[in-house]
């Protein structure tokens, strides 16, 4: 068995020891390790525990906090609503591209950042706006975006 597969086994073993057959805690634990729920791991979980795969899939698609596709550690949502667009939202997106090399919908290759655009964050008074990991930032200019993201990057490195 390859090294990687043994790791997966260990993760599953530990998760089952801790949570028994409770699907949601099991999935949360798996997601913590892999940052998402890889299909193959869920299939292994089903074989290991006897929990029908469809029940696992049901839970995995039901909860917003669980994801079947890779997620980045930091989620950046830049507002592309009308107000933010007029007040320079596009420049923020350009700045992020310069800094991280990702366009909306993309993830950095190290899995650290994901960028997406949203249609109006509901705080047009502070346009242009963005949300990073659930935290709102308004009245932004590209320099500030650079500062915010650089701070997160430093944290990731240390």
């Amino acid at each position: 068995m390859s090294k990687q597969l043994t790791d997966v086994e260990d993760v599953l073993e530990g998760a089952v020891k801790k949570h028994g057959l409770s699907v949601v805690p099991l999935l949360q634990e798996i997601q913590e390790h892999f940052r998402y729920l890889p299909e193959e791991v869920l299939r292994m979980l089903s074989r290991k525990t006897g929990i029908p795969l469809i029940d696992i899939y049901h839970a995995a698609t039901f909860y917003n906090s669980l994801s079947l596709t890779p997620r980045a550690r930091h989620q950046i949502s830049v507002c592309a609503g009308t107000t933010c667009h007029i007040r320079g939202g596009g420049k923020l997106i350009e700045e992020i591209f310069q800094l991280l090399g990702i366009r909306p919908g993309e993830i950095t290759s190290d899995g650290e950042f994901m960028l997406e655009t949203v249609n109006c964050l509901g705080c047009c008074a502070f346009a242009p706006a963005m949300v990073v990991d659930g935290k709102y930032y308004g009245n932004l200019n590209p320099g500030e975006v650079r500062e915010i993201l650089n701070a997160l990057r430093k944290k990731a490195v240390s």
Binding site: E39, L42, P52, L53, I54, D55, I56, Y57, H58, T61, F62, L68
Partner: peptide, 18 residues
Amino acid sequence: KAIGFAHRGSNRRVTTPF
């Protein structure tokens, strides 16, 4: 246990795993 509900809200539907 081959099929079940997946997703939720207006996307809720019956399907097979994945």
